[in-house]
């Protein structure tokens, strides 16, 4: 290292502090310091700045701040602030966040900014074509059912109109004072049918003439027109020697004045005609072919149940004054409603 002098004394000082000077070199350095007292202070300073082992291992107090959350890889403070905004912080995490903000007040403004990252609902953006997406209720009808119900309805309507509006054919009941006779009568009310039946009991003679005239024009009910009896025939008839025979051989009159007998035979004649009143015919057809032996209400109930999947309800909404505001009939997927 050479002789100590003002050009190299620092090396001697360092070795002296580190304890690596030999005894001779230390003696030499002591003599040098006596000769140069100004450097003695510098040596003292050197001794003061000697670093202790503790001072060489500093403690960093911000370790926690550098750590990252395991899943998001965010800093703990960021993670806790976002979790706070998200509303998913546990009680412990809230406490930890509170401590972080206490230690560093600038984190409070960061938290405020995080709150601003929440997107606000914007009503400015709307879908303009909603109506095009909507669907209308479509009733998918079973064709057979449609035909069946339509026929039933038509028959019912027809029968109803027939009973009320059109000419009705009927057979009055025979009794001891009157004869049964087929007539055509126009009625306006079903309830007046029986009253009319009483009224139409007219005199026997007029009915015979009337019916005879009709019979002439009718092929079906053509009967032998009773010819006026000649006096000779009348005499023979009276004596029982003459039998009046009509052309069709169905009507046999033994006594021309026995009108009662003639009327009875004529009534029996009519009974033989294959005639069913139209209303009865319609009823039979409806009952046999459309209603299939069931009542109309049973058929309607079954049809309604099939359409509605057994889900039928009737909702009524009333006001405070107990007045109906709205009502709705819900049949399966179909709803019929009205608002007053």
């Amino acid at each position: 290292m050479g002789k100590i002098g003002r050009h190299n004394y620092e090396a001697y000082f360092l070795d002296y502090i580190e304890g690596t000077l030999s005894e001779a070199e230390r003696m030499e350095m002591q003599k040098f310091l006596i000769a140069n007292p100004d450097l003695k202070e510098e040596l003292d300073t050197f001794e003061m700045v000697e670093l202790s082992s503790e001072a060489s291992s500093p403690i960093y107090f911000g370790k926690e701040d550098l750590k990252r959350e395991a899943n998001t890889a965010l800093l703990e403070s960021d993670y806790l602030m976002i979790a706070e905004v998200e509303g998913v912080n546990t009680k412990e995490e809230k406490q930890r966040l509170s401590e972080i903000i206490k230690e560093d007040q600038s984190k409070l403004s960061d938290l405020a900014i995080y709150h601003k990252t929440k997107l606000k609902d914007s009503n400015a953006i709307v879908f303009q074509e909603k109506e095009a997406l909507k669907r209308k209720s479509v009733i998918y009808l079973n064709f057979k059912k449609v035909i069946s119900y339509s026929s039933a309805a038509a028959a019912i309507i027809f029968g109803f109109i027939y009973f009320n509006q059109i000419e009705n054919r009927y057979t009055p009941i025979n009794n001891s004072n009157s004869i049964a006779w087929n007539i055509e009568e126009t009625v306006s009310e079903p309830s007046s049918l029986f009253a009319v039946s009483q009224e139409v009991e007219t005199s026997i003679e007029s009915k015979i003439i009337e019916e005879s005239e009709k019979a002439e024009s009718s092929e079906k009910r053509q009967i032998e027109k009773i010819e006026p009896l000649q006096s000779s025939k009348f005499a023979a008839l009276a004596s029982g020697d003459y039998e009046l025979k009509p052309k069709n051989q169905d009507l046999i009159v033994n006594n021309p004045i026995d009108l009662e007998t003639k009327e009875r035979v004529f009534a029996e004649e009519n009974k033989k005609v294959d005639y069913i009143p139209i209303d009865q015919y319609a009823k039979n057809q409806i009952q046999d072919k459309l209603l299939k032996g069931k009542s109309l209400s049973e058929n309607l109930n079954e049809g309604l149940a099939a359409l509605s999947d057994d889900k039928v309800s009737f909702d009524i909404k009333t006001s405070d004054a107990n007045r109906i505001q709205k009502f709705a009939l819900n049949i399966g997927k179909f709803s019929f409603s009205r608002t007053n």
């Binding site: 998001t72 965010l74 976002i82 905004v85 998200e86 900014i113 995080y114 601003k116 990252t117």
Partner: peptide, 8 residues
């Protein structure tokens, strides 16, 4: 979480 950090 990462989206919020980026937004912030």
């Amino acid at each position: 979480f990462r989206a919020r950090k980026l937004l912030k």
